[in-house]
Design a protein around this nucleic acid. Structure first.
Lengths: 238, 238
DNA sequence: CGTTCCCTTGACACCGATCAACTCTGGTGG
DNA sequence: CCACCAGAGTTGATCGGTGTCAAGGGAACG
């Protein structure tokens, strides 16, 4: 099952035709090994990239050697819908795990949106949710302390992974090193480590071998100030 | 002159018909006094709001009484294109100055995008630039120190204001209190004050009476690590 | 002419960064 | 099967950037 179809169907009504159009667009699948770039800053790809399996991360490198992770991409997420319109990538995307990526030709994407208003609307919903996530990350970085930031990130990924059926018993794959978490929440790896220990000691979660188990989602959400409304897991307005 | 038309024409070719359609859509103008909400979290507006004159800010309040400003809206910017699709606002927007806001009916907006593919493409470009700005703000909050953050914000607003013709001799209206700047860059007002003084002492800028004069844009940009590529002031791909 | 924001300043506290080991784990090759 | 190794996680000591609290000053406005 195509994860994009599954994602869009949660919020919109797609016809069989739409299904076929999406499936057809996703014919060209590439496997990218872990820790390799899917796209680099400055690229002008002729394809739109869609994550079918695995995790990827959007990031920017700064002069000085630091890095900020800007988004996590999980199955069903587009890497770069915007290069349909914008001139080039202003950031890179790398694979956190081995990732299956569908290469959808730019022209096919444009055709899809011209032919299928309801599908276009669903795709638009997806980009708006991505945008809402960016806003919440700004709040996270700007106004929450270290412990809350990490807790909030974990709550969000729990919610998103659950949405696509990849959470069982509040347990899911979190293929991130503590360095990567640190580069996401604007902390150092050392402090991230200490905060994760605090969360463990408080009995909120366990995390080893890239598997996260949330032991008390209610308390974790309360600690993080997590409110999933920004993820808009609700039907699209007609 | 409608600032939305001016903005879109910098990157796309619009017909006279497009102009008229935009002008017609912007008939219903409301003036919102400074410090009043234009939209609140939870609202389900039937109109899309477009800033015609003045500054507004997108924000989220947190339990605990803190606030994070998520975006600044200047003439030509939409407040909430997304409520065309999403169920309700997950954040508020307030006026920083008295603001002229065009209320564009949701239905008119939908009609516009159905009838005018090239205009739709230009609007899409605008939302993608907004998204790129959000990404850069995440980098700003996550990986730059206090001085760099403020410098970067000022560089960005200088660039955006220049783009719409509101900068003369590197001088422009910056209608923000230090509290508001602090709530934007994730600092306290006290520390924001000290950093602004540092920037002044370094001969980079002057700021009083809500007017910012940048004395040395090159050095300010270098200090901030500012690269305007993310603002995509370039023509839209066809 | 007083009131209310807003800006400014100083002293001090503390969260998270930095630096430098050390441990653990999983993978690889002999 | 074991020895080794690299990457990831952990720990401790110390430093510094930013927060906090409190007070005072200045400018706009009724």
């Amino acid at each position: 099952m195509n994860p994009l179809i599954a994602k869009l169907e949660r919020v919109a009504i797609l016809t069989d035709d739409d299904h076929e159009a999406i499936t057809a667009a996703c014919r060209d699948v590439h496997r990218v090994p872990a820790n390799k770039d899917i796209i680099r800053e400055g690229d002008k790809p002729d394809h739109v990239h869609l994550v079918l399996d695995g995790w990827a991360a959007r990031y920017k490198d700064l002069p000085g050697g630091t890095r900020q992770i800007i988004a996590y991409l999980i199955p069903g997420d587009f890497c770069d819908l915007h290069v349909t319109i914008l001139s080039e990538m202003d950031h890179g995307i790398f694979a956190l795990t081995p990732v299956d990526v569908a290469y959808i030709p730019r022209t096919a994407m444009i055709q899809l949106t011209l032919d299928r208003p309801s599908l276009t609307r669903a795709l638009w919903w997806a980009t708006l949710v991505d945008e809402a996530v960016l806003r919440e990350w700004i709040v996270n970085l700007g106004r929450r302390d270290a412990l809350e930031r990490i807790a909030h990130l974990l709550c969000e990924m729990h919610f998103r992974m659950k949405n696509i059926g990849l959470v069982h018993d509040d347990r899911f794959d979190l293929p991130l090193t503590q360095d990567e978490i640190a580069d996401t929440v604007g902390l150092t790896a050392v402090h991230t480590n200490r905060m994760l220990q605090t969360l463990r000691l408080d009995g909120l979660l366990t995390l080893h071998g890239r598997v996260l188990t949330i032991l008390d989602i209610d308390r974790l959400r309360q600690l993080a100030g997590f409110n999933p409304n920004y993820l808009y897991a609700t039907p699209v307005r007609q």
